Amino acid sequence: MKYTNRKQAVLLLKDGTIFYGKSIGIEGKTFGEVAFNTGTTGYQEIFTDPSYYGQIMVTTNAHIGNYGVSVEDVESNGVKIAGLVCKNFSFNYSRTSASESLFDYFEKQNLIVISDVDTRALVSYIRDNGAMNAVICTDGTPIEELKTLLADVPDMNGLELASVVSTKEPYFFGDENAKYKISALDLGIKTNILRNLAKRDCYIKVFPFNATYADLKSFSPDGYFLSNGPGDPEPLTSAQQVARDILNENQPLFGICLGHQVIALANGISTYKMFNGHRGINHPVKNLITGKGEITSQNHGFAVSKEDLDKNNDFELTHVHLNDGTVAGMKMKSKNCFSVQYHPEASPGPHDSSYLFDQFIENIKASKN
């Protein structure tokens, strides 16, 4: 079998720490911010989520690839992670709905992967030292050369990445005869968000990240949506202006993840880069309005300042992350606007948070009365 004699590979962190492993057979090197995800399933959704663009993903689950790849599980037009670090990479798979192996899928997109890594030690190190830039190398490049190359990789703080993953041209999703029309600003939108809106009788027009409010308004929508996406929200000044323009006319507005952060910045509420971020499918969130808990899927390295949010009399904290008290959701008191930091479309609960899409539809209905 061609995978038996695999070459040694390295993961080099920016602080000089090295973890050794083996190449799965795709040679090269790749750079990005190293981060870990604690999910035990859903690896394909993670790998194709545009919010992960620019990140080297460490999976804490011991086995990756064992259930192959299915066309129904993709969240975008291809792999978005910069590279993968895992413990055990399975070249064989067993799932009737799978169309191919994960290796074949990665090979087509030339994704650099290192396996046989002590991921427990690596995750523990990242938890203690924070997310940082790293390089995976499977082609034998000397360590000193890798250090030089890694030093030139830009930090995620201040990095605008939405423009890389956003659509270049507007497109439509759903039934054109649906009851509601939604204009969505694509900052790195996941396909399952569009599915959830379409399932609720919505016809969506998806616009590029730099579209103006006039562009979005030209669709004559019943509501507006700001999507998830990668990178720092602060450089997204055009998206922040779109949010302000929507709010100035008090149109229904819903934001998820990066869109949530953009809404905050549009109202003078700051954001900050987290030490490690939240990435996984088991994050506990409390809805402060209902008192109920939700098991949520999260993927973000930036967060909204709770201190700034508390000072803004026009905003109400609606959801809080129970692990660290960070802002997980908010709404405006004088405007038809709310947002969450997590991903209700991912449904790990499995449906703890799906009500948020229903809430958006109810807000649209209320605006029509």
Results as ranks from 00 to 15, higher is better:
residue 2 K to D: 12
residue 3 Y to N: 15
residue 7 K to M: 15
residue 8 Q to E: 15
residue 23 S to L: 14
residue 26 I to D: 14
residue 37 N to I: 02
residue 40 T to K: 14
residue 42 G to W: 06
residue 49 D to T: 10
residue 52 Y to S: 12
residue 53 Y to N: 05
residue 54 G to T: 03
residue 54 G to F: 09
residue 59 T to W: 02
residue 59 T to H: 04
residue 60 T to K: 04
residue 64 I to A: 03
residue 65 G to L: 04
residue 66 N to V: 07
residue 68 G to E: 05
residue 75 E to L: 11
residue 81 I to D: 11
residue 83 G to R: 13
residue 83 G to P: 03
residue 84 L to G: 02
residue 86 C to A: 10
residue 88 N to K: 15
residue 88 N to H: 00
residue 89 F to K: 08
residue 90 S to V: 10
residue 95 R to K: 15
residue 100 E to P: 02
residue 103 F to V: 12
residue 109 Q to H: 12
residue 115 S to I: 01
residue 119 T to G: 03
residue 121 A to E: 05
residue 121 A to T: 00
residue 133 N to C: 15
residue 136 I to K: 06
residue 139 D to C: 09
residue 140 G to K: 11
residue 147 K to E: 06
residue 148 T to M: 07
residue 153 V to G: 05
residue 163 S to N: 15
residue 168 K to R: 11
residue 171 Y to R: 03
residue 173 F to K: 13
residue 189 I to G: 09
residue 193 I to H: 03
residue 194 L to S: 01
residue 194 L to Y: 01
residue 196 N to S: 02
residue 198 A to H: 03
residue 201 D to T: 01
residue 203 Y to H: 14
residue 210 N to V: 11
residue 211 A to C: 13
residue 214 A to R: 10
residue 229 G to A: 12
residue 231 G to I: 09
residue 232 D to Q: 11
residue 237 T to G: 01
residue 238 S to K: 10
residue 242 V to T: 09
residue 244 R to I: 09
residue 253 L to D: 01
residue 253 L to M: 05
residue 268 G to N: 02
residue 275 F to E: 03
residue 281 I to W: 13
residue 285 V to M: 06
residue 286 K to T: 08
residue 289 I to V: 15
residue 293 G to C: 09
residue 297 S to W: 00
residue 299 N to Q: 10
residue 309 L to W: 07
residue 309 L to C: 05
residue 310 D to G: 01
residue 331 K to Y: 01
residue 332 M to R: 08
residue 340 V to E: 02
residue 341 Q to W: 05
residue 342 Y to F: 14
residue 342 Y to K: 00
residue 346 A to R: 00
residue 349 G to Q: 00
residue 353 S to M: 06
residue 356 L to P: 07
residue 358 D to I: 08
residue 359 Q to V: 02
residue 360 F to P: 08
residue 369 N to H: 03
